[in-house]
Design a protein around this nucleic acid. Sequence first.
DNA 1: GCAGCGCATTGAAGCGCTTCAGGTCGAGAC
DNA 2: GTCTCGACCTGAAGCGCTTCAATGCGCTGC
Lengths: 355, 355
Amino acid sequence: MHRNNHPGAESRAGIADVASLAGVSQGTVSNVLNHPERVAEETRARVVRAMEMLSYVPNGLARSLAAGSSSTIGLVVTDLSNSLFIDIARGAERAAELAGVDLMLANADGRLDREERYLGLFAQSRFAGILMTLNDEQHFASIAARATGRTPLVMLNFNAPEARFCSASVDNELGGYLAAQHLLELGRRRLVFVGGPDELKPVQDRGRGYRRALREHGLGSVREVMPERINRADGWEIGLALADPVARAEVDGIFASSDLLAAGIVQALAGTVGVSIPEDVAIVGFDNNQAAWDSPIPITTVSQPGEAVGRIGAELVQTEAAARSGPHAHRSVILTPELVVRRSTSTVPALQTTA
Amino acid sequence: MHRNNHPGAESRAGIADVASLAGVSQGTVSNVLNHPERVAEETRARVVRAMEMLSYVPNGLARSLAAGSSSTIGLVVTDLSNSLFIDIARGAERAAELAGVDLMLANADGRLDREERYLGLFAQSRFAGILMTLNDEQHFASIAARATGRTPLVMLNFNAPEARFCSASVDNELGGYLAAQHLLELGRRRLVFVGGPDELKPVQDRGRGYRRALREHGLGSVREVMPERINRADGWEIGLALADPVARAEVDGIFASSDLLAAGIVQALAGTVGVSIPEDVAIVGFDNNQAAWDSPIPITTVSQPGEAVGRIGAELVQTEAAARSGPHAHRSVILTPELVVRRSTSTVPALQTTA
DNA sequence: GCAGCGCATTGAAGCGCTTCAGGTCGAGAC
DNA sequence: GTCTCGACCTGAAGCGCTTCAATGCGCTGC
C-alpha cells in the first residue's frame, strides 16, 4: 500500500500533521479531542487552529479501534414503508440524541436476509449496541441463534424472553381486547376478525385479546379470516369478499389486525354500492398508521406508541452497553396501546387534527 | 487499558486466536477472508472451522482502517415521513446491494443541524461515499462549504453544479409544465398555483414550468398562494380559504406543489358543502406520495421517480469512489417526471391498483 | 541432477488513533 | 535553597486487522 500521489489529492491530514503544525505531540492533539480539560487553554486554541487549517477530519475507525468502543448505535427496521417503524426510528433517534450518541438506520425492506446482513454489518462495525424490530417467533429464534451475545441487542416490537434480551413492545393482547370491546359497546354483534399468518405473533396476540372480549360478552368468534400477508392489497381482496355478507347484514363489525389491511377493506367496501361505513359496518384497524388517518374514511384504530418503543429501546440498549463489563439483568418493557376513535366506527368523531 | 476479565465475558476472539487454533499465520486467516483463492482449499476449510468454533466476528473497524477503504455508503435523508425519500432509499439500497456494498441510513427528520451532524459522522466513519437529499440553494451552499471533498458526496433531488458534485434529480420545471398542461387540456382556465417558500428550489422550478404552460396558452398566472411550509396542515388551511372562490366558480383548477399540500386541500374542500372534485375544481399534486393515492379522492399528481433517483445516486457515488485515485468528472443526471391521472382531475380514471 | 518456476504460506510493518507511565517546569512550603 | 506537588505535555505501546516482500517446497524440463 503506498500513498496516493496523484495531483490535487494530497492525502488527508492525520493527527500527526496537526501535531507538527501546532508544535505539540500527538498525545496532546488527542487530548484536545477527548479530554479538553487536560490541555492548557492556549495550547488547545493552537491545536484547534491547526485542525482548521488542515481541515482535519478525525478518523472514526481508528478512534473506535484504539478506544475499544464506539458511541454509535444501530437500528435495523423491518420495513420503512410502514409508518410505525418510522415512529420507532424517530423515538430511538431522539433518545440517542439526548444521550449524545449517534444512530444509524438500516432498512430490511421486508426481507429476512437483509435483516441478518445488516445485523452482521452492525456487529462488525462494533457499534455500542443494536436495536432491531422483530415480528415473529420463528424470526426471533433465527436471530437469537445467531446472536453472538457480544454486542448488546435489544428487540423492539417483540416481547423477547428476559433471560436473553432486553425488549420494548406493546401489549397486543390488550389492544385486540380494546378493539373488540369498542365494537361491542357500539352494539355490534356480528363481528369478523381479520387476522394474519400464524407466524406473526403480535397478530395472534391481537386475536387472543379480541376473543377474550367476545367471551366476556358471551359470544364466540364466528368469522375469522386469515390472509397470507397483512398489507393493503390483501385487505382489498378481503373487503371485496366481505361486501356480500355486509350487504346481507350478516356482518356489522370488522376488526382488522393492521391498518393497512383495514384501509384496503375500507377502500373495497366504500366503493361497493349500498355499503356505508360505519352505519352498515364498523371497522377497527391496528397500529395508528398514516394509512388509518389518511384513509377516505378515517379509520378507528388501536394506537401503538411507536415513538415510546423506540425511545425505550434506545435507553435499554445504552444501559446494557454501559453494563458491558459487569452483569446485566435484561428487562422487557411492555407498553399500553390506546384506542383512537375515528369515522370508521363513529358518526360523531372527535375533531380530527392532522399529524 | 486492560482486558476485561469478569466472569462469562472472555474477550472476543480475534484473528490471532483463529490463526493459532487453525495452526496457520494471521496472514492466512486474513487471506481466507479477503482473497480465498489464494488459500489451499484444505487450509481454508480448517480456518473456517476455527472461525466457527470461536464464533469469530471480524472487526470491521480494524479491517477498514488497515485496508484504507470501506465498502459502506451512507445516505442522509431529509425526512423519512415523506414517502418520496423512502423510495429514494429503496432505490439506493437496491443499487448498493447489486454492487455488493452496504448502505446505512440517517434520518435528519427535517432538521438541518442533524443533517450536518450525520454528514460529519459518515465522513468520520470513512464511508466509501455519501448520498444526501437536498432541498434548497441555501442549504446546498452551507453543505457545499463544509464539504471537505475527500469523501465522494452526491446530491439527490437537487441539481448541483457539475463543477463540484455529482447529483441525481428530477426536472421539476417540466413537472410543473405537465401539471398545468393537464389542467388546461381539461378546459380549466381559472387556475391557482399553490407554491411554497422561496428557498425551496424544486418548488420554484415547478412554478416556473406551470407559468410557462400558461403563457403558451396565452394566459397569465393570476392566483398564486405561497404558504410558509408545504405540508398537509398548510394545505388544509389553503383549502378552507379556497372553498369560497371555488363555490363562486372563480377557481376551477388547482396545482399544488406537493401531494401533502394537495391532500390537505382535498380534505378541506371535499368536506365543504357543495364542492365536488373534480367537477367544480380539478386538483393536481406533485411527488406521487402515498398521500396522493391514499387520499379520500385519489389525487392526480406528477410522479417523481424516487427509486431511480436513489439508484442512480448510488451508482454515481460508487463511480466517484472508484475514481478516487484519479480525476473524476462530476455528472448531474436529470430524470423526467410523469403525470399520473387520478380521480381528482378525471371522472373516468384508469383502473387504480394499490402499491 | 539441478536450475527455475509457481503456489501456499509466513512474518512484520503499518493503518490513525488512544492511553498512560513517565518527564519537565514553575510555584508554594519549610 | 531544597523538596514536593500539580499542571502539562511527551513518547511509545498497542487496538485488530491487511498487505507484501520473503521463504519454502514440490515440480517440470533438460
